[in-house]
Design a binder for these strands. Structure first.
Lengths: 342, 342
DNA sequence: TATTAGCACTCGAACCGCGCGAGTGCTAAC
DNA sequence: GTTAGCACTCGCGCGGTTCGAGTGCTAATA
């Protein structure tokens, strides 16, 4: 049973009608909205077929039809390969938003996520830009107290990380300088994976007694190195998710998930390079009614990350997909201009 | 009409019964629970008095009584000056949690908030430690791209901030060094309030042509300076707030508020030095059913911040207040040990 | 004077039955 | 293949009723 053109158009109409007000759509309403010269009876026949195909379902006998995830998937596939594009004005609006954003990579990503969330009225997750094999281009050690030193690391992407370490003797300027030198000599331009126990031992030992006394500082530096390649994650527009009654039950799970960095990272790790749509039902821990549209962004210098819109299954897919695409495009561009280590 | 001892005990009993299951408390239930040798009729009389005093109210005529914010306030005052303390085990549990937390000031604060949230089952807000007149003890400028430089600043508290800036000519190592020198000469140990236009102009001009060409870098440094004294804010355990039906309506407002850094900062700015309780009804934009218990923490070196528990009005005040107090105590201690600029 | 048993009263929650109407599938005519 | 017509289904909303928890008041009691 093929899905001919008319069925397809009917499906689209149902999807968008249902998205608008969340009410199951019946053949009558549909025939009024759907200005094809066709009666409600015909529509009923078609709808029955679509139901048999698993694309529609009825909440109960005397109710209208509601699209299934399968229908959304179908609808979205079409949209993704379709030619539809943002209008001039829509694009211009987003351009304007981007011009007003902060320049710094992390802030840029966060700002973009917030702007997208506000624009769509859904939640938006974003991972800050990071590189596959990130490395630290510079370590700096600063004394902040008699017993404490701050270690700073700058990654190739221009991201900065800091950490405070405490030792149990009074630090001297000489020690500080020696540590900084040792760090920059041994850990600069090194990927986390390449750090071996031998390398660390050698580095610490090279300072003699001062090496072991300052172990906490080295340890802090190693922590920074391991964090260098790990993105921060922001979840903007959470409050909008409260507006969708169908998400009520799953919000707890969603927020718990969002609080778990590992989990989000896994979820946003691009499956392929394009836009992907994941329904809550398909998740490891299902969250019915939820839909996650995600897309990676890429910037110069191997820098990348991902953005995802979290909203109800009945979201405005056209708006979401086109805007998400455009946002991630601009985000990649913006980052290429600003930070990347060319 | 004084609130004698018995009235007080009745009030407490109602508060804790209502906290337990959220159902209005009637005289019968109360007399069963309340093992004072007193009949339900007497309780009814007392409850009528308490109602007249504005400490109790009835959702509707034939329902039991519910404590008003005024009652909670009364209850809490008592608790605050009372001698009640955490048990050995409770304190030991928290001690253990703290030992497992990260050492870094920001991480420590965030980790503590998360632990407290998990322990209580409410949301917890925390501002990261910051000093009243914070200043930057060191600037560092690192070249990360041909046209981009990262500016790093370390505050006296050991907090680090980074920012990437882009100029429109190819940076040289000499420029970078000159900028770093100028920043450290002019902006180190300077409070934000003391930065004048004249100072900035002088600093930039001191580099001659290289000064104006590198304005974006200076600008980034100034941004860092102004951010140096501003705390980060974390909101942990948000998901727990979904469990309280009485908060349903206000969650949108609360999350919007939480997304607004200014707003949270204002809300948590300590009114006095002890624990304060703010009810949602009393807020600028009222959020009925909400209660915010907040408390500042202080560490050596003028470092301070605040922690707040956000939960339903009918929260377990004893647990919340005692634990919050202990957490903020330990947080202050932990920070004093780690970062402060002694 | 404080306490308490008894009682009439109130009023929300839960339940029930009913009619309405939106929506369906099927059939027969076009 | 399309459509008008029709019988049928079933959730929703409405009014009425019962039930019971909880109240305030009164009168008796210690």
């Amino acid at each position: 049973m093929a899905i001919d053109d008319r069925k397809q158009r009917i499906l689209m109409a149902i999807v968008s009608l249902y998205a608008a007000d969340g009410e199951p759509v019946g053949s009558n309403l549909l025939s009024r909205y759907f200005d094809m010269a066709v009666s409600s009876a015909t529509l009923r026949n078609e709808m029955a077929t679509l139901t048999r195909l698993g694309l529609l379902e009825q909440p109960h006998t005397s109710a209208g039809r509601v699209p299934t995830p399968k229908a959304y998937r179908f609808f979205v596939e079409n949209l993704l390969e379709g030619k539809s594009e943002l209008s001039e004005e829509e694009a211009a609006e987003i351009d304007a938003v981007f011009r007003s954003l902060d320049y710094d990579p992390d802030k840029l990503a966060q700002g973009a996520a917030k702007a997208l969330a506000d624009m769509l009225g859904y939640g938006v997750l974003v991972t800050t830009p990071h590189a596959e094999n990130s490395h630290v281009v510079h370590f700096e050690v600063i004394q902040v107290g008699r017993y404490t030193a701050a270690v700073l690391a700058v990654t190739a992407e221009g991201g900065g990380r800091t950490r405070v370490a405490k030792v149990d003797y009074e630090l001297t300027a000489k020690d500080i300088a020696a540590i900084a030198a040792a760090l920059n000599k041994n850990l600069r331009f090194v990927a986390e994976a390449d750090v071996t126990g031998a390398l660390i031992r050698q580095m610490v030992d090279s300072l003699g007694e001062a090496g072991s006394k300052n172990w906490p500082v080295f340890s802090a530096a190693l922590t920074l190195l391991s964090e260098a390649g790990r993105p921060n994650i922001y979840f903007e527009g959470q409050q909008y998710l409260l507006n969708w009654p169908e998400l009520d039950g799953g919000l707890h799970s969603l927020l718990s998930l969002a609080a778990d960095r590992e989990g989000v990272e896994r979820l946003l790790t691009p499956r392929g390079s394009g836009t992907t749509v994941l329904f809550g039902e398909e998740m490891d821990e299902p969250i019915p009614g939820l839909c996650l549209v995600s897309r990676p962004y890429r910037a110069a210098g191997g820098l990348s990350g991902a953005m995802a819109v979290a909203g109800p299954e009945r979201m405005k897919y056209r708006d979401v997909i086109l805007r998400l695409n455009y946002f991630s495009l601009l985000l990649g561009k913006g980052l290429s201009q600003s930070g990347a280590g060319l």
